[in-house]
Design a protein around this nucleic acid. Structure first.
Lengths: 205, 205
DNA sequence: CCAGAGTGGGTGAGCGTTCACTCACCCGTC
DNA sequence: GACGGGTGAGTGAACGCTCACCCACTCTGG
């Protein structure tokens, strides 16, 4: 036996939730994947629901650190480079966490418990947006972003696009995605910065 | 009895899926809500899974019509007004359809069936993006959008933000949303059009 | 004209299966 | 000898689904 059983159980649950879905992730399947008995699950977790809450709390990745780092120290990269990097990370983050987070909608009881535990920790699905909002505000104060910019709207746009990609294009599994991640991220950052309206100086044409 | 049983069953299933979640929507609950026997369900649908597929196909709203209408005839409203209206509709669309669509991730078998039936109909979660992309391209050709604009990125940004709002802020039920829908939609459209970078003419300050 | 067969929509009871969970018991380590 | 960590064999409940049967209505042949 390699890792301690608790870790193996969490890993196995996480993997099953991602692949066969929350509903089909039964105690029997978890036990088989974690190479232990069903009874062993209950030595480590009081109930299946508590096991799931633990998976959500201990296995889902976070986007916060990157955003905090950039806010604290924007570095010498341009805003566009920073936004591109954020978009790249966000695409990965949502691709990994979205399927599991989404499946909570099938079990509203479990979802409520998870929401509560999130609220206690002062976090939730809205915190990446607020983190990016904060970063953009600091760039605005540094004069690297337009003074009139709506930073919350901008944060919603960028992260929304990344999250949407996770579920709008996973049904097309097998086919390649419409655009490589790097290209997609760069296009988002560029478009968000420049806007799409015809420049005023160009209106006469 | 009012409406035909088939309709009552579809309505009841739809309502239950929204409120208590896909997993807790059992045949017994559906029968009770539709005011008929469990056996009656199977007179109208071959299996529970087929019933769900029917609900998804016949009860989920669509965003396509608005987008096609605007593409065919942009009308005399400005691009910003049109984008604001699209964002408003999209927020409602996603708020209604997202919880159910998301819960499919809990049942990957069912999700695959739904994906297949979507593919046959030539539609899916990516079609609103493509529809908006088409609309923006037509505006670009009409010269009302910057020639260099990446219309796909822009479409991803706008609709992504609307979809994200549906799940990033529904765990905060009880509290009011961070921003009224109309205001949010207007801010998104404005930000997307103008961008957030400091204007070139302003770089000297 | 009308007996009677067929049909669409409905039911109550209950089938087999699977689920989350428990219990009595076991074994190596302080 | 207490105890943390593990097991195999269950348990009751809940699930999706089926079965035999029922009723109201429509069609049809003598």
């Amino acid at each position: 036996m390699q890792k301690p059983a608790r870790e193996r159980i969490l890993d196995a649950s996480h993997e099953l939730m991602r692949t066969i879905g929350l509903a089909r992730t039964t105690t029997k399947e978890i036990a088989r994947a974690a190479d232990c008995s069903e009874a062993a699950l209950y030595k480590h977790f009081a109930s299946k629901e508590e096991l799931f809450v633990a998976v959500l709390k201990e296995r889902l990745p976070e986007l916060g650190p990157l955003l905090h780092r950039l806010t604290a120290d924007p570095g010498d990269r341009s805003v566009e480079e920073n936004l591109t990097e954020i978009a790249r990370q966000a695409v990965h983050f949502y691709a990994e966490s979205f399927p599991i987070a989404a499946s909570l909608y099938a079990e509203t009881r479990l979802k409520r418990r998870h929401d509560d535990s999130m609220r206690e920790m002062g976090t939730g699905p809205h915190t990446p947006i607020e983190g990016l909002d904060t970063y953009l505000r600091s760039e605005r104060e540094a004069g690297r972003v337009s003074p009139g910019a709506d930073t919350f709207a901008a944060a919603s746009l960028l992260l929304g696009a990344c999250a949407q990609r996770a579920f709008a294009y996973d049904s097309t599994i097998g086919k390649e995605p419409p655009q490589p991640v790097d290209e997609f991220a760069a296009a988002l950052a560029r478009t968000l910065l420049n806007g799409i309206s015809r420049p005023a100086s160009d209106r006469s044409r």
